[in-house]
């Protein structure tokens, strides 16, 4: 029953991408990325609970170039999902559905997520 051949709507590639379409799929993609990120976070917590030596090893891994790149992606995904999640909460209570507003809030979320990511990393480097 699940695999019945049904007529399909035009494939995604047919449409010109409005910003709302991009923000929608990015919400799902960042959500999945953050789910993977919980493994990293849990690893960090385990390391902190294990003691100074193991913690230093994990910190070295996360502090490597590759580690920093992963954390950069992780932090952007978190800020994006957080901001776009707030946008979803506004929709849930019935605000911001008109197309111009949805387009503007979409761009605000994208730009805001980049700004917050940069700010967080500036803070992190200034504290180091």
């Amino acid at each position: 029953m699940a695999n019945v051949e049904r007529p399909l709507s035009p494939h995604l590639q047919i449409y010109r991408w409005p910003v709302t379409m991009a923000t929608s799929i990015l919400h799902r993609a960042t959500g999945c990325g953050l789910a993977a990120g919980t493994l990293l976070l849990t690893w960090w917590l385990v390391a902190a609970a294990a003691g100074p030596e193991y913690y230093a090893m994990v910190q070295a891994c996360l502090g490597s170039i590759l580690g920093r790149l992963v954390l950069l992606g992780f932090s952007w995904a978190l800020f994006y999902h957080l901001l776009n999640g707030i946008r979803h909460l506004f929709w849930d209570v019935g605000h911001g559905y008109s197309i111009p507003v949805a387009n503007k809030s979409g761009w605000a979320v994208i730009i805001g997520s980049v700004v917050l990511t940069v700010l967080a990393w500036i803070l992190a480097y200034s504290w180091k």
Partner: peptide, 10 residues
């Protein structure tokens, strides 16, 4: 499993 490990670590 993962959530339990995280909570236990805390």
């Amino acid at each position: 499993v993962v959530g339990g490990i995280a909570a236990l670590s805390v």
